[in-house]
Simulated scan of single mutants.
Amino acid sequence: MSAETTYLVADIGGTNARFAIARGNSREGFVLEQIQRLKNQDFEHLHDAAKTYLEGCSGAHPERGCFAVAGPVNPGLIQLTNSSWSFEPRELGRHLGLKHLLPVNDFAAQARGAPLASPQETSLIREGEAAPNAPCAVLGPGTGLGLGLLVSHANDLNVLPTEGGHAGFSPRTEEESAVATFLRAEYGFASWERVLSGQGLLNIYRALCLADGTPWPEYSPEKITEEALTHPGSRSARTVQLFCSALGAFAGDVAVMSGARGGIYLGGGILPKIQALLRESDFEARFIHHDPMTDYVASIPVWLILSDTAPLLGAAALAEKGDL
């Protein structure tokens, strides 16, 4: 066995599972090796996919692991969201030859991995001065809207998973109020996630169509972001502008409510693709404007996570620690 500890880490979604061997530690950083993406549909069970991955790996067999999964993590059997896969962590760990396997929610791993990302994997959205040992917040619109907090404790970082994406959406403009009205009519409750997610892009676009008296063209989220990038005067561009503005307001709310003066990290799969539009939008103005706490928020830096390795890095740190 190698003198350096290695960990089996995975980021498991509803469609794909990414595996890697992580080497290193939280203090000096981790190196991800032998990264491989497998399609869920090619395997009946998660243990089949994980076993196939390990059998193809070279080097010492890892003794510990952490699997970040898309879905709630509770004691006992874990069922993935949007997947037929389920597993019991202790049983799966034994099946894979691991002494310990820690299951965590995928956004908990994303949150823990955010500060471990290299400078090349992040982009500064707004400058500020991070307060030492203050909490950080990690939020990200993707399939849903994830929100996690990082709290410094005993020379380590503890992850506090939340369901903050399901808090009530707070519109600040007439157009946003129209979106909120649409969401309440459609769902009965207007949450931030129903604005700040892939489905949120569709909801905003549909609300604008209704307000404009035009038919809904059955766009996908990808179609909306693509058209927004290439046609600045389009309804898709209005949709993304409202999306980015609302994101700024939500991030500012999170900063005030959580005391996240250590900084805000923006993750998820949508934002790297629209980084140029995010920078041109009212994100920063809406993030800062929290009277009478504007000066408080204005000191907080915001970074955009560009790489998809953060959940794997976070899983490595959590495997090393053994819990959240």
Rank of each mutant, 00 (worst) to 15 (best):
T230W: 04
S84Y: 04
P217T: 14
R64A: 04
P221Y: 10
G93C: 08
L101M: 07
I204V: 14
C136D: 00
G93L: 09
E222I: 15
G148L: 03
F87D: 00
V31G: 05
A255C: 14
A260R: 04
L149I: 11
T173Q: 06
M257P: 00
L77W: 03
P115H: 15
P171F: 11
Q199C: 01
E176W: 01
E163Q: 15
E174L: 10
P311C: 09
E44L: 13
D212W: 08
F250D: 07
A260I: 13
G168S: 15
E88K: 12
I305A: 08
P132V: 09
L160M: 14
M1L: 10
R172F: 13
A111D: 05
G24K: 00
N16M: 06
R194P: 00
A317R: 05
G24L: 00
Q34E: 12
I300A: 08
F87C: 01
A167S: 14
P119D: 10
G252A: 10
L324A: 10
R172P: 02
E176P: 02
L313H: 01
A114R: 08
E63K: 13
A211C: 07
T173P: 04
W192K: 06
L242P: 03
D156M: 05
C209T: 07
P217I: 12
L77A: 07
R64C: 02
A50V: 08
L229C: 12
C244V: 05
A178C: 11
P103F: 01
F30D: 00
P161F: 05
A134Y: 11
E174Y: 02
K273T: 11
P119T: 05
F67L: 15
S26C: 05
H289S: 13
H231C: 13
H153M: 04
G71N: 11
Q199V: 03
V254N: 06
S86W: 01
S236W: 06
T5G: 01
S170V: 14
